[in-house]
């Protein structure tokens, strides 16, 4: 990929815009189409584009597989944690209206947090899948021989 000058320049221009668009979709989901699932996929695709152009190993240095896995779990934990906090504040599990002083304020806060958890998990799982597919070598699981060569 070293000589694909046009691809590299265009990717460098596009990736910040894609990341910004992902954040817009994430935090504007209350008002327009969008939300955590879509934003996570868009955020992940920006990373995957980076990995495709500049090499998967360069992408692994930006977000290491360990960080990706931990953050993926953090998204689910954040979502489930919001429910536990609602219980601790005297409500039911995932009853956001007890999270803030007013009912709608609590709903806003709860939806904001769980959508962030959704986006985090989806983005990190997408990046993790990309790492899996680009890093997989069949020989690692067959003692150095490809199944079709044997």
């Amino acid at each position: 990929m070293r000589h694909h000058l046009v691809l590299r320049v265009i990717a460098k221009l596009l990736i910040p815009l894609i990341l910004l668009f992902a954040l817009y979709v994430q935090f504007h989901g209350d008002f327009g189409p969008g939300g955590g699932f879509q934003a996570g996929v868009i955020f992940g695709s920006a990373f995957i584009l980076y990995g495709l152009i500049f090499g998967a190993n360069t992408a692994r240095r930006v977000a290491t597989p360990e960080v990706v896995r931990v953050l993926a779990a953090c998204g689910v934990l954040l979502y489930a944690g919001v429910g536990v906090v609602a219980i601790l504040r005297g409500g039911n599990y995932l009853q956001y209206r007890v999270l803030a002083a007013t009912a709608t304020g609590g709903e806003h806060l709860g939806i904001f947090l769980i959508e962030f958890g959704v986006g985090l998990t989806v983005a990190m799982i997408m990046i993790g899948l990309f790492y899996c597919f680009t890093g997989y070598r069949p020989s690692d699981h067959n003692n150095g021989t490809h199944p079709h060569d044997a």
Binding site: F37, R69, I114, C132, G135
Partner: peptide, 21 residues
């Protein structure tokens, strides 16, 4: 939606285990 996120997470972890990420 919590269940859906858990499904995505579990599926992703499953692929990570299978392909050795």
């Amino acid at each position: 939606t919590l269940g859906e996120v858990a499904v995505i997470f579990t599926a992703g972890i499953g692929v990570l285990c299978l392909l050795g990420g």
